[in-house]
Structure formats: C-alpha cells, structure tokens
Design a binder for these strands. Structure first.
Lengths: 239, 239
DNA sequence: AGTCTTTATAGTCGAGACGACTATTAGTCG
DNA sequence: CGACTAATAGTCGTCTCGACTATAAAGACT
C-alpha cells in the first residue's frame, strides 16, 4: 500500500435511506416508495436520496422523507441512525455510500409520492419484498435494531399516539417481537419502571370498542429502561 | 426544494475513523496518532483516513489501522460500526463524511507511526484530549457504546487474551464502567450464563503475582448475553 | 517456620423480580 | 338481562441478585 498519494481521495456519492415503521391494524408496516428513475425504476424501495452540499445526514433524511412521501413534521419524528452501508457495488450506477436511519410513527398518515418517487405507501412488513438495492438487508437490520431497543429504551412510546393505553403499548411489543405477553405482568412491569409512562390525571379513558375502558398514559421523561424489559427468553438458543 | 435537478449529487470525501480501546495496567487506553499533515498537523487524532475507490468502510478501517499504527491481524480484530458523522463543517478542508468504528484489543502491542501518522501510541482514556476534528465526540460515543454493549453482549472477552481468569474479565467491566463489582457475585453470574465463558480443561492456572492461582477460561460460543449483566443501578437518576 | 496479605472460590441469606395464574370490574353487544 | 370482552387487582412459588461470611492457596515479611 505504500506509494499511493496520501492526499488522493475518491469522491463518493452519499445518500440516506429511511426505514420508517408504524403499526396499522395491529401489524407492522414499513414506508415504501416506488422508484420513478433508473436504476430499479418501477420497483419498490426505502425512501431516501442524495445529500445536498451543506446538509447533515439527518437533515437530508428529513428532507427526503418530506419530498418523497409528504410526511413532514410528524409530531416530533425521531430519527435514529442505524448504520452506514458502503459495499462497493451496492448501487449499479456508481459508488454510493448510504447512511441508513430508522424512525417510528404512531398513527399512519397516508403518504403520497413526490420527487423521485412515483408513489409512496405503507406496506405490511412481511410483504415488503422484493426491494431495490440492498434495501431488504437495511430493512431487516432496522427491524432487529428496533426489536432490541424496545428492551432497553422507552422507544415503544414512539409507536403510540401522545396518549395511549397500556394495551396499545403492549401491542407494540407483541407486534415487533412477534410474541404474546402476559397482560397483568406487562402492566406491573411498565408501571414499576419510573419515568416510562405517567398517567393522564383527568380520569381519562378511551374505548376502542368492547371491554372495560382503559386508563390513559403519556410517555414519561425517561429515555432508558432500568431494568430492561426483556423479551421472553429464547432459552437454550444461544444467539 | 422543488426545481433542483433530481440527479444532481454532490461528491463527498468519505473517511473512516477508529476508536481502538485496550486495557493497560488496569486503565482504559485509546490508540491515537499524531497527525503529520494539515489540517491539525502535530495534533493527536484517532487513526483513520480516506476510503479507496473499491473498498468498503470496514476494509478501509483495517487498512488504515495497519498503515498508521502497524497493528494488523491482531488475533481476530473485531471492528464494530459506531455511527457516521456528517456535519458539514467537521473538516475545514472540504466536505467529509466519516464512518466511525470501535474495536477492542486484549494485550497492547506497541504501535508505530506510518502513512499520514507521524507517530502512534496508546494514551490513557482520561488524558486523550484535545483531539483533532470532532474526534473527542467520536471517542466519547465509542466509550458509551462499549459500556452499553458490555451489558448485553459477550464483548468483554474481546478485551482479554485468548485464555483469561475471571478476575481479568471482571477488570474489564470495572475499568470501562468505572465501578467496583462484587467478585463472588460476578463469578456466579458469568458462570451461570451459558456460552459466555468455558473453562480450560487442562487444570490450567496462572499467577500474575500474589494470591491463589485462578482457573483459566476461554471465550464461549455465545455472542449475546441472556439475561444481561447490568451495571449497578443508577437508581433515581433517569437517564 | 510462622504469620500476614492477597486473590480465588464456596456458600448463605433475605429482599425483590418474574412467570403463571385466578378473580374482579366495567364496559359493549345481542 | 346475560354473554362476551378487555382492563385491572391480586396471589404464589421460583429464581435472581446484592450483601456478606468463610475457606483455600499462593507470595511476602520477620
């Protein structure tokens, strides 16, 4: 490796990709766009695009989300950086390095295409294939990350509207993890964690339909869960 | 934002930066290089450099580590992507997007400068300031990440030589977390976690000096810790 | 030698968390 | 009104965890 010019550097294109997840009708959905341009024109992909000259990756992610899907300023949308994908041939046009983000939304406003996207829509997570580029891998990584972060952080409330019932919060865990949780135990655990949720004092209640009305809660001030809310043990199955 | 050319993209320089940590004399150390080139010539920085045209970020990270510090093929060096730093003005020369990695080493071979690095050395973590660019922030992020991953993964064994005592493993936790742990309880917990460590059968032992010889262990096959080994609760201090 | 110090390892004990489960309450639906 | 549904309350045995004590095996000191 000696002898190459130490100051030489290759220019790369830098993009962002977004794995935006939400819950609709009790199922995990992901925001997809139909590509309007080559390569992969007509195929579905994660929203995203090139960084502008003076943008940070997070700024670019918010801009592309707004441009391609019409989702903007969605009640404090929290983006979390997932990782960066830099394999040399991940884009057939040229060398592209992509910074991937995850985001979670409570309600699901309908997106609409724009910019490079012919159209945009929520797609059930299980049916989000095939995807352009290496976006299937990015989406799978995002799912793993969100599942893991539910254990140790208060992230689950980001899937819920500003005021929610403990049943709705439990649905988040069950849907993302794909397991059933015991309701009384979940309740005990959540309420025993200081700062996770706080009750809405106005004796509020909400009826989705049948059954006893549930008390409403708001997201608490904590961001980390101590102790964590571990998913049911996959005993004997070393990860 | 309408009206800009959808295919326009700005070329960026892409670099990698490495936060390589090790334990020396019971203290956390980080691998630093003295910059030989402007900007920040003569100042200390994390090792790293530009991606070559057909390199992935991880490949570039291993190459730069070898070039700048002479550390190569260090018994299965495991790099983990930390995050990507893309603020527009983080490099005074031009627009540079940097993919940061963390790595952990057991023993600490002495590094030697090379490439862009005038010299390289292990520096105690507490005294690793000031650093060039935004490397202080990257280093702090790396420390946070490693501390968190010790709880949920078997990462701690990466700080240890191939065969180690439980006391050495405990030192990793105590040094990174900056807390003292109860030795019998630590032992009980580690041995109760299947796949974390496995005893070296050959009645092996090792004496660093005084005291009863300790049994030797090897890293197990597990990569995740279930249940996690939580650090002492910061009760009442919501994170 | 004999004792002290140091480190590893074994074991004990009580508080609390957790999983599985049952019971009660408060609504809607037919 | 009862059947059904979902939320909430409570119970109970097991297991974990932190704090602590005790023992074992080495070097250091006198």
């Amino acid at each position: 490796m000696r002898g190459y010019d130490k100051h030489a550097f290759e220019p790369f294109a830098v993009t962002v990709d977004l794995a935006v997840l939400t819950l609709r009708a009790g199922a995990l959905h992901v925001l997809l766009v139909e590509r309007g341009q080559e390569p992969y024109a007509g195929q579905w992909a994660l929203p995203g695009g090139f960084l502008l000259p003076r943008e940070s990756a997070e700024t670019a992610a918010r801009r592309e989300l707004a441009e391609e899907t019409g989702l903007s300023d969605v009640s404090g949308l929290r983006l979390e950086q997932l990782r960066t994908y830099s394999e040399p041939d991940r884009d057939p046009r040229m060398r592209v390095v992509s910074v991937a983000f995850t985001a979670l939304l409570p309600d699901a406003p309908e997106p609409h295409g724009g910019g490079d996207a012919a159209q945009a829509r929520w797609q059930p997570y299980d049916q989000a294939r095939p995807l352009a580029f290496d976006h299937e891998r990015i989406l799978a990584d995002a799912h793993d990350r969100v599942g893991a972060r539910l254990e140790y952080s208060c992230l689950a409330t980001a899937f819920c509207p500003p005021e929610f019932t403990l049943g709705e919060l439990q649905n988040v865990y069950e849907t993302v993890w794909g397991v059933a949780l015991d309701r009384p135990n979940f309740r005990r655990k959540v309420l025993a964690t200081p700062g996770f949720v706080e009750p809405v004092p106005g004796a509020a209640r909400l009826t989705g339909g049948r059954g006893k009305p549930a008390a409403l809660y708001r997201a608490g001030t904590a961001t980390a869960l101590h102790p964590p809310l571990l998913r049911p043990s996959r005993e004997g199955r070393p990860a």
